[in-house]
Design a protein around this nucleic acid. Structure first.
Lengths: 327, 327
DNA sequence: CCCATACATGGAAGCGCTTCCACCGCAATA
DNA sequence: TATTGCGGTGGAAGCGCTTCCATGTATGGG
């Protein structure tokens, strides 16, 4: 049964008739090696199907640069939203280009301490935290300082990358005002996600300037909640003439909810979202929204972390108004 | 500057006044340890912020069960599609429950050999390949036999998990026929993805039974291609009265394309998709489609791999017709 | 023909950890 | 009191790899 054993560098060296040191030099491409030795080792590697053990290698080189991506918030809501998937894919792309591995971690909302456990070993090149809560970010192990970035929130202690949802919201709400709406309601994100605060601020500010009173309802970024919230809003403030949701998914739900209520969009009520997801242009009426360059943001975070760039503070990416039919 | 060094188990042992062996026993929870030793070690761990080095641990235990997820196909199309993200998230969930790490790999379509490189070391508990091409699966390193599963294709050599798109397609197309459609076109997936073959078979079969002639157009699972394909189809076969796309995203694109053409849905042409994504119910008209339990499938694949269950052969998950407004 | 120089090579140390094994002291039993 | 058994413990080996260092072995110039 020894045939089932995976080959080790010793096996390769023995098969090639060289020392393990030489074999290592050839395999890694570092250090001198005669053509003869090179050939024999290469042949042995192929013959034995040798694959270096990453653990052993990382142990000695202390250079195992792996990019860890931690997603916080274990809610079902995340499943339907393409957001996390897009972040994952984009960050994984960046990592793949640099030939560093990616590890994925799924952290419950209520156990921020688990972030610390991610730093398993020095094999960690960096950590990207998606949708982090504030307490979670404070549990980042000190060995990792300077190698952590946050996506999707304006974090304090670590470099963070997010869309400028203040400016984006401002743009959307101003557009609503410009097109004659005054009684504008807003559906926010989940309360545990601090990223919405700046958006709500912007919304309040525009309303104040235009003489409207704020009508804020808490959402959770899901479509189901959007439909529900639409009903709530129309019941509580029947004269509402516009609804702005901080998520396209929710806005699509609003469209659905209003449709069920027999409210016409945009005739009776204008609807706007945020994110400009692929489906925003496909709904009927097509959704007015503001862009969210998720891939750029995630890629930037991954790059910053892998480059050990100390981009402290928050970086906000521009969001552009996309006017379609719903508002 | 020694303060910056990350603590090792030796440091912990020294601080706790015990041997490294004892410290290890306490940290891992394996083997006997007196309450006194336990307390002292625990305290030392906390004080030093010690985190075990996963590489070193994996090296000696040979038990580093990490779940590798490889996504094949580097196309932009994957980005918009929630599919891959959902697979990732679901598999990561399963892994998280069992406390095994997840590593993510992004493989170009044209270099299947890179699959072999994933088996870096014995730290690999299993490999889930998403959307694998046939040649890619054949490059799986022999050390990994029995620890690989495929998602999204009826693979030959490794256990595979996919939706039963033969039955699903059958259900959708029969529904179209039942509602009076005869001149039904189909938009498939990309040609490099073999999973569509069975669906096309089913489509052909139903058409043959109902006396229609097949009208097959190649797609790529994107919405943009759907809009394009709709135009192509209507130009080539102007009397088409139904379009079935093997992807909801594409079907939504078809809706858009037909709308631009001034074709009414479902009045003039019925449209049906496949997958029942979250947005399918939100489009206007709401999309008729067939379910695709992506999360179940991905979870099953991850479980099979982590359990070392030798579920050879293909497992197909049922797909249920969802009739909405578009067909 | 001999010595300096370069390169190729193997021996050996050690990365941080787990675990086998031998050991020791203690309580329980004869 | 002598013997057994056992939980707790430390020493030491070794996982597979890289890399320092010393030792060859060809090559050039003097």
């Amino acid at each position: 049964m020894t045939g089932e054993r995976t080959a080790t560098l010793d096996d390769v060296a023995r098969a090639a008739g060289v020392s393990r040191a030489t074999a290592s030099r050839v395999v890694t491409g570092q250090g001198p090696a005669s053509p003869r030795a090179r050939d024999r080792v290469t042949a042995a590697v192929a013959a034995l199907g040798y694959v270096p053990d990453a653990s052993a290698r990382a142990l000695v080189t202390r250079t195992g640069t792996r990019l860890a991506i931690a997603v916080i918030g274990h809610t079902a809501a995340v499943l339907d939203d393409p957001y996390v998937g897009r972040v994952l894919i984009s960050a994984a792309h960046v990592a793949a280009e640099r030939e560093v591995g990616v590890s994925l971690h799924w952290l419950p909302l209520d156990d921020p301490g688990s972030l610390a456990r991610l730093a398993d070993g020095r094999g960690l090149g960096g950590l990207v935290v998606v949708n982090p809560t504030r307490p979670a970010l404070e549990t980042v192990p000190r060995g990792l300082r300077g190698r952590v970035a946050a996506v999707g929130v304006g974090a304090r202690h670590v470099p963070s990358f997010d869309v400028d949802n203040r400016a984006g919201t401002d743009g959307v709400v101003r557009h609503l005002v410009r097109t004659g709406r005054r009684r504008i309601a807003m559906i926010t994100g989940p309360s545990w996600l601090p990223c919405g605060d700046r958006a709500v601020d912007a919304y309040r500010k525009v309303l104040r300037d235009s003489g409207g009173e704020p009508r804020v309802v808490t959402g959770d970024f899901t479509a189901a909640r959007g439909a529900e919230a639409a009903t709530e809003i129309m019941a509580r403030w029947p004269d509402t003439d516009a609804v702005f949701a901080l998520s396209d998914l929710t806005a699509l739900g609003v469209l659905d909810g209003l449709h069920a209520l027999g409210v016409r969009v945009p005739g009776d009520v204008a609807v706007a979202g945020f994110d400009d997801i692929a489906f925003a242009g496909l709904s009927r009426p097509a959704l007015t929204t503001s862009t969210h360059p998720v891939e750029d943001i995630a890629a930037a975070a991954a790059q910053a972390v892998l480059d050990r760039r100390d981009t402290s503070g928050a970086t906000f990416y521009p969001s552009a108004l996309v006017v379609r039919d719903s508002a």
